[in-house]
């Protein structure tokens, strides 16, 4: 199987344009970029994808070992770059993908021209002298929340969700048709996301980096954005008017303008 199929890669825009790769965070899939990505198609080669285990990726390619660390997810990014032979990539990573992007760029710096980190957090759990915003107990509660919301994923619905929908009628019955995946995989991704500590990786990042920080973001609060800015040498920090954790959905124009001004 090709990586393109495995990661449900969608390429659009100018074939000879500079590649802009949009990476989704924990909780949803490449649909998170549907209001932002089209704005780059006129002058860029736009690459969208789902991590293995999310969206319409091939769930059979999921391996708990490979995806037990963010490096496994960074390898997805690199695999796509290799298969499409991308260089000078602008990687736009939302939420946990901001850190996945840093890991990918640290592993193969020659591939990446710029990084845009939307709502990054290198460590969600508070630590000695560090405020991530959450306690280990909070993350345990999130896992319970995920367990309580598995209801949309039954064995009957799984094939529809996974994309072999030869029964479209079933698709219409889906309660929440986006952002769903196998609850076991979602649970593991949540653990990897919220229990990782990638603070040490920031200083090693030599790729020019833009940080987009929203107001009132409970997932990645402002002090965390400032921490990332201070830790990545030469990075630029933009404080957005947008509130919440998903400016790519709630304030697409502001997000597009901020990314454009950095390119």
């Amino acid at each position: 199987m090709t990586v393109t199929v495995r990661n449900h890669v969608n390429v659009s825009g100018r074939p000879d344009g500079r590649p802009v790769m949009f990476a989704h965070g924990f909780g949803c899939d490449q649909n998170m970029w549907r209001l932002v990505a089209p704005a780059f198609e006129d002058d860029h080669r736009v690459v969208l994808f789902d991590y293995v285990g999310m969206g319409r990726s091939d769930l059979s390619a999921y391996s708990p070992e490979r995806y037990s660390t963010l490096d496994g997810y960074a390898q997805d990014v690199l695999d796509i770059c290799h298969e499409l032979d991308l260089t000078d990539v602008v990687l736009v990573g939302h939420s946990v993908s901001a850190l996945i992007g840093v890991l990918a760029a640290n592993a193969e710096p020659e591939r990446f021209g710029k990084l845009v980190l939307v709502g990054p957090s290198p460590r969600y759990i508070d630590d000695d002298g560090y405020t991530g915003g959450f306690s280990a107990q909070d993350i345990e509660e999130l896992l319970e929340s995920l367990d309580s919301n598995y209801l949309g994923w039954s064995s009957e619905m799984a094939p529809v969700i996974m994309g072999n929908a030869d029964r479209p009628a079933l698709g219409e019955e889906l309660t929440n048709s986006f952002c769903r995946t196998d609850p076991q995989i979602a649970r593991r991704f949540a653990q990897v996301t919220f229990l990782s500590d990638n603070r040490a990786d920031l200083a090693r990042c030599g790729t020019p980096t833009l940080i987009l920080q929203c107001a009132d973001d409970v997932i990645a609060p402002e002090p965390v954005g400032r921490y990332v800015h201070a830790a990545i040498p030469g990075s630029r920090l933009v404080m957005m008017r947008a509130t919440g954790h998903c400016p790519n959905l709630s304030a697409p124009e502001e997000t597009i303008a901020a990314i454009r001004s950095f390119l």
């Binding site: 998170m32 909070d138 919301n149 209801l151 048709s177 986006f178 952002c179 959905l249």
Partner: peptide, 28 residues
């Protein structure tokens, strides 16, 4: 919401609302 559900809200519920203008049977 309790903190765990707040994360769920931001990572799942809010995106769902933005993408499909509705969400159903969300347990919090």
């Amino acid at each position: 919401l309790v903190v765990g559900d707040r994360i769920f809200y931001e990572t799942h519920f809010a995106p769902l609302l933005a993408l499909q203008s509705s969400a159903r049977e969300i347990a919090v």
